[in-house]
Design a protein around this nucleic acid. Structure first.
Length: 650
RNA sequence: GCCGACAUAGCUCAGCCGGUAGAGCAACUGAUUCGUAAUCAGUAGGUCCCCGGUUCAAUUCCGGGUGUCGGCUCCA
């Protein structure tokens, strides 16, 4: 009598197999050779396992094929193992550390004195191809913690030993090893069947990375790579990267005359005429929106005495990121540190609190909403600067709202309503993350309890799906961050809503309640664009520089068939400018084809062709960016069309 | 800030073993007057990122700095 186990398939049917049958064999013999060939790993009762795992109990089985993103994740981890084995074969002085699959690929961190060069990467990539060709099986093995320590200790793998000790400290009794060829690493698994199934691997870059992400630890060398099951998919991926590169705001910005950088002001943008227009259009739209929603615009100084930052807590918690400024009257004999008794503001909130305190406030005024786009400076580490997404000088669409605790939920709902309206106008879907108290914080736990609870209730009430992000709150309060997904599927953090109980305490903010006693207000910090700089970077990439008419720095360009038609072309231009549109004329002696091409490259929404027919009919022949050729139409008709398209959507 | 790579005309890029630089596009001038992604010809344009060093001679080799890029960390 054979010893059988009952295996249930995803469709609910079940099969029997001899106990100890390898999953791979079971799939091949009892389900189908096609599935067996496509299989990468399996799940037994939802637990991911290798295909080589024997069936030792009744279980539900799910076969994961190379079509699944989960299989790709496993294969990328396989690729990391393969790469590490090749690196250690070619460079025996390299110690291994960790190597996970990440979005779009994988990496592996090595400890080695000599950095890897691009030539090294080529060698390693070749080695990987050989290792894949050799088709070594991935073999799983469980060993005791002692045996594992002995194994990695004898190899001189000090980082591995450290990890094993950590795992042992958490109470694990055994460790899972995976071998392929003569190389071994420990790893939860599962892995694919063999190196031959990993597909194609391409190494992308080398970078430094601190051991465990801590700058106090040694610097490791991280090699990034990517893996796909077939060459075509890899090529598509590389093509996508190329496309993303073409949309890179750092390239498009200067090319379209939006903004530029100069080494004399690292991390601070120069706004060129087109970019300044875009900036102002966005600002005007936001101004109208917030004014219609009960906000009042304020402006406060850029430079403040450090006493403000001591009150707010920034001097203690945020000084590293502030630009300190010397006061020439503090005495030249003092150390520089003490002479720097003022700072450019890195945030608007403290100065808004000062405005709040300039008068006696009543509960009848609340919620009191201040809005500003003042310039902020943060002294970001030089290595972190990059394009407009990470700058030292920037402007937020920033607001601070003073209210009673009982008003928080309504106010958060109002803010989210504004946000939805704004993001919808750009076709940007968003998702929410709830950041709770960080380790470095001010304010006692009771305040944090109440602040987190208020935000949580507001989120629940709105029915907004959100992710938890424990420890990611600001140092003065919890927050909800909203990230948008752009047209390339990349995610960007933009808007933030932060509830702050701490600042009202520190600044001793009060209002007179209806009971005629003093009460403590709560402050909500919020921004919708986030910063104009980052938002413009995202929009530039989202639209690939081809902004919709309402945003486009130049909305229409008149192009003449020949300069015989300049007269009417100039009349068209003047009419458009008089209507308040942003228009220009290409009066060069180029041929029409070249002018159309130039207008395309400049990504102007409308090229207005003016030739003999148009002169006679007092018309223009608009051509949309992208190639759609509209029929010749009267100038009035086009003005109407543009007026509609150029109307701000909020 | 740390690790690594890179820096040549406005842009994209050549430039071998050290002998002070070249193309295409853009710009400018002229010719052309043309119907939906490049008309032709000519002209001009360089602190080869900056400062040192080696050398008879440095864009090239070496050292230092700055900036940018890819990461680490952080974040709007």
């Amino acid at each position: 009598m054979p010893d059988l186990v009952k295996i249930t398939l995803p469709d609910g049917s079940s099969k029997e197999a001899e106990r100890g049958t390898r999953i791979a064999d079971f799939v091949k013999e009892q389900i189908g050779a096609g599935l067996a060939k496509a299989a990468y790993f399996a799940k037994l009762d939802a637990e991911p396992v290798d295909l080589a795992r024997p069936l030792d109990r009744d279980a539900r089985i799910e076969v994961v094929t190379t079509k699944s993103p989960e299989a790709q994740e496993v294969a990328r981890h396989d690729a990391a193992h393969v790469m590490a084995s090749v690196v250690q074969r070619l460079y025996p002085d390299a110690q291994v550390t960790i190597g996970p699959a990440v979005e779009d690929g994988f990496y592996y961190d090595f400890a080695r004195d000599k950095p890897f060069t691009p030539e090294d990467l080529e060698r390693i990539e070749k080695g990987i191809a050989e290792e894949i060709k050799a088709d070594h099986r991935f073999v799983r093995e469980e060993v005791s913690m002692e045996a594992a320590l002995e194994l990695f200790g004898s190899k001189g793998e000090t980082f591995k030993v450290e990890i094993v000790k950590d795992i042992a400290a958490k109470g694990a009794k055994t460790l899972t090893l995976y071998r392929h060829g003569d190389w071994v690493d420990f790893c939860l698994g599962p892995h694919g069947p063999s190196t031959g199934r990993v597909g194609v691997v391409k190494l992308m870059s080398v970078a430094g990375a601190y051991w465990r992400g801590d700058p106090k630890n040694p610097m490791l060398q991280r090699i990034y790579g990517t893996q796909f099951f077939d060459r075509k998919a890899l090529e598509e991926h590389l093509h996508r990267l190329e496309e993303a590169k073409k949309r890179d705001h750092r390239k498009l910005g200067p090319a379209l005359g939006l903004f530029a950088f100069h080494e004399y002001a690292p991390g601070s943008a120069f706004w060129l005429p087109h970019g300044t227009t875009l900036f102002r259009v966005l600002r005007d739209a936001m101004d109208r929106l917030v004014r219609a929603n009960g906000y009042q615009e304020v402006k406060t100084p850029l430079l403040f005495n450090k006493r403000l930052w001591e009150t707010s807590g920034h001097w203690g918690k945020y000084r590293e990121n502030m630009f300190l400024v010397v006061d020439k009257e503090t005495g030249e004999d003092l150390p520089l540190d003490e002479r720097c008794n003022q700072s450019l503001k890195p945030m608007n909130c403290p100065s808004h609190h000062l405005i709040y305190k300039m008068g006696k406030r009543s509960y009848r005024e609340l919620p009191l909403r201040y809005f500003t786009t003042d310039v902020l400076h943060r002294n970001e580490a030089s290595g972190t600067l990059g394009g407009l997404t990470r700058v030292r000088q920037f402007q937020q669409d920033d607001s601070h709202i003073y209210l009673m605790e009982s008003q928080i939920q309504d106010e958060v709902a109002r803010i989210v309503g504004l946000m939805k309206q704004v993001y919808a106008a750009f076709g940007l879907p968003f998702s929410a993350r709830f950041g709770t108290r960080p380790e470095e914080r001010i304010g006692d736990d009771a305040l944090w309890d109440r602040a987190e609870e208020a935000l949580r209730v507001a989120l629940e009430r709105l029915g907004l799906p959100y992710e938890m992000n424990p420890g990611d709150g600001a140092f003065y309060g919890p927050k909800i961050d909203f990230a948008v997904t752009d047209s390339l599927g990349r995610s960007w953090q933009l808007c933030t809503i932060q509830v702050d109980y701490a600042a009202p305490e520190r600044f001793d903010l009060t209002y007179a309640g209806d009971d005629n006693t003093e009460h403590r207000p709560v402050v909500i910090h919020r921004a919708i664009y986030g910063s104009f700089e980052r938002f413009i970077a995202i929009l530039t990439e989202h639209y690939a520089g081809a902004f919709p008419a309402w945003l486009a720095p130049v909305q229409a360009r008149v192009v003449t068939v020949s300069d015989r038609f300049d007269g009417w072309a100039k009349a068209v231009l003047e009419r458009l400018l008089a209507e308040g549109f942003r228009a220009e004329l290409d009066g060069s002696s180029d041929k029409l084809g070249a002018k159309i091409r130039d207008a395309q490259i400049a990504k102007v929404p409308f090229a207005l062709v003016v030739g003999e027919k148009e002169v006679e009919a007092k018309a223009v022949a608009p051509r949309r960016h992208g190639g759609q050729d509209l029929k010749s139409m009267g100038l009035d008709a086009f003005v109407d069309l543009l007026r509609k398209e150029a109307a701000p959507p909020f």
